[in-house]
Design a protein around this nucleic acid. Structure first.
Length: 479
RNA sequence: GCCCCCAUCGUCUAGUGGCCCAGGACGCCGCCCUUUCAAGGCGGUAACGGGGAUUCGAACUCCCCUGGGGGCACCA
């Protein structure tokens, strides 16, 4: 059997979407699961940039950067469809010469308008074959009028189209339901179906793994391949779609969809990949759900992918992310956030304090953003510590907050300067109060909020002078 | 409207005729731990959309209904 050749083919009309990332991942897993080296599988990246109106060069780069971030690596140089336009046009013209395609003079508006009438009359929309059987004379007449034309591919009138899908089995549609479709726009630029069919054939793609939203287009691509004389058809696998929480299509209205958004929200690439793989697929219970890319490659199996679309669950993503944060080596985790922390806190950044804070925060946060936010109080000047109104209210609500702060100040002035020496539990108990009930006041005074790093560590990390400044400031404000 | 795909806990899923009065994970709830909050540990709640058919037996097979998603562009 010939080596497996797959491709991920995004259209650079926006940032990489989680759906696209999942498609790319499944292609990668499939390829890497089918041998390595010279006789192993090949995974290509193909940029489908034939729509000149919507493509932007920044997205071409952006998508590749995002794939790199996810450690989804492809083989060789990315392929640009825009560089193969001549080839697509030549194929289209051959179709015209062979009578498989025809010139169509209907404008986009004509087609839209007739579609609307068809719908209103209860007839199916889609091209109605208006220019299908124009005579040579009629065509000449229209050209003489200066009317632009597109090239339309003539689909069979009868029979069915069937292809085999690795996930769904045989998928069959009657040709009568597939109208003639455009392959060359009026500006002679090729359309998706054509470019896709030509490239898959030219590149010897053996398996096409993509989203289910493309399932209906498969028949059109296949008929073009046959028209080109392709002896074999690739095997398809249509992945179930990812849905928003309300089961509608995942879109910006429902929160994050771009991979970069998850990145900026402090999600690790390992976690996103892991979560995406779990959408529609699940490993043996004995293995557990937290899997590295290498483990996914080992276990993932396209034939066990579910058929139904899946709702994207950000809670579970965050849980997986927390698991990954704890699995990462502390130094590695620190390295991932250090540039950001340095930039955010400038001169106040202290490498030793930072290292300690990461070690503590690693065990208690679910995202990188949480991790960094927790340590923010360590790198701000005492006067710049922001205490939100709710946090201050929390402090004020603490029983005998004034006594608590006085006792804490006295202790911090005199105690041995170690985390154990700072321990305030006995101090609070001596006041006849429960540490668990009143400690929040100390958190607010030191960290500016009622949640964050364990406060004895925080006090130790900012140092005696700063700790006292903050405690006294809070005490003064309390009056 | 027409075509295609699909249907197990709130969510992701296991389950391929008896092992299932349905297992796991996230969430949620409770308890424990505890320097607030988290994190962690333990426990609990919760599902086979409906109706027929086949069978000794159906979550698993078939049909219908209902429901959901996708497609029907000179986007991909």
């Amino acid at each position: 059997m010939a080596p497996v050749r797959v491709r991920f083919s995004p259209a650079p009309t926006g940032e990489l979407h989680v759906g696209g990332a999942r498609t790319a991942l499944c292609n990668l897993l499939f390829a890497r699961g089918h041998g390595a080296g010279s006789d192993g599988a090949t995974f290509l990246l193909r940029i489908e940039d034939t729509d000149r109106a919507r493509v932007r060069e920044e997205w071409v780069d952006g998508i590749q950067d995002t794939l790199h971030w996810l450690s989804i690596g492809w083989d060789g140089q990315p392929i640009r469809q825009s560089e193969h336009v001549d080839r697509y046009v030549a194929v289209a013209e051959q179709f015209l010469a062979d009578g498989l395609a025809y010139e169509c003079f209907c404008t986009e508006d004509d087609v839209k308008e007739r579609n609307a009438t068809a719908r209103a009359a209860g007839r199916p929309p889609g091209y109605d074959g208006h220019c299908r059987d124009l005579t040579t004379a009629e065509r000449d007449e229209r050209r003489a009028e200066g009317r632009a034309s597109v090239l339309r591919f003539r689909t069979p009138d009868t029979g069915v189209s069937t292809f085999r899908d690795l996930i769904r089995g045989d998928v069959t549609v009657e040709w009568a339901n597939i109208p003639d479709f455009v392959i060359l726009r009026s500006d002679r630029s090729p359309i998706f179906f054509l470019a896709n069919a030509v490239d898959d054939l030219d590149e010897g793609i053996t398996h096409v793994i993509r989203g289910e939203d493309l399932i209906d287009t498969t028949h059109r691509v296949l008929v073009l391949r046959r028209a080109m004389g392709a002896a074999e058809q690739p095997i398809y696998a249509h992945l179930p779609l990812i849905l928003a929480a309300d089961r509608s299509k995942l879109s910006k209205r429902h929160g994050s969809v771009a991979v970069e958004e998850f990145r900026s929200r402090g999600i690790l690439p390992e976690a996103l990949l892991n979560y995406l793989a779990l959408l529609g697929w699940s490993p043996d219970e004995a293995i557990g759900e937290i899997l590295s890319l290498a483990e996914l490659i080992e276990h993932f199996d396209l034939e066990h992918v579910t058929h139904a679309s899946a709702v994207f669950d950000e809670k579970k993503l965050e849980w997986i992310n927390g698991e990954w944060m704890r699995r990462l080596d502390t130094a590695e985790l620190a390295a991932r956030v250090e540039p950001e922390v340095r930039e955010r806190f400038g001169a106040a950044f202290d490498p030793d304090v930072f290292a300690h804070a990461v070690a503590i925060g690693q065990e208690r946060s679910s995202t990188l953003v949480q991790l960094v936010d927790q340590m923010a109080c360590l790198f701000v000047a005492d006067d710049d510590l922001v205490i939100e109104p709710e946090a201050w209210a929390r402090l004020e609500a603490v029983e005998r907050a004034d006594d608590v702060l006085d006792a804490v100040i006295a202790h911090v002035e005199a105690c041995e300067w170690t985390v154990d020496g700072i321990n305030l539990v006995e101090v609070i108990k001596q006041l006849g109060l429960k540490p668990g009930k009143v400690m929040a006041a100390v958190y607010v005074a030191i960290e500016g909020r009622a949640q964050g790093l364990p406060v004895f560590d925080a006090i130790w990390l900012i140092g005696q002078e700063h700790a006292l400044n903050r405690l006294r400031a809070a005490r003064d404000r309390l009056g």
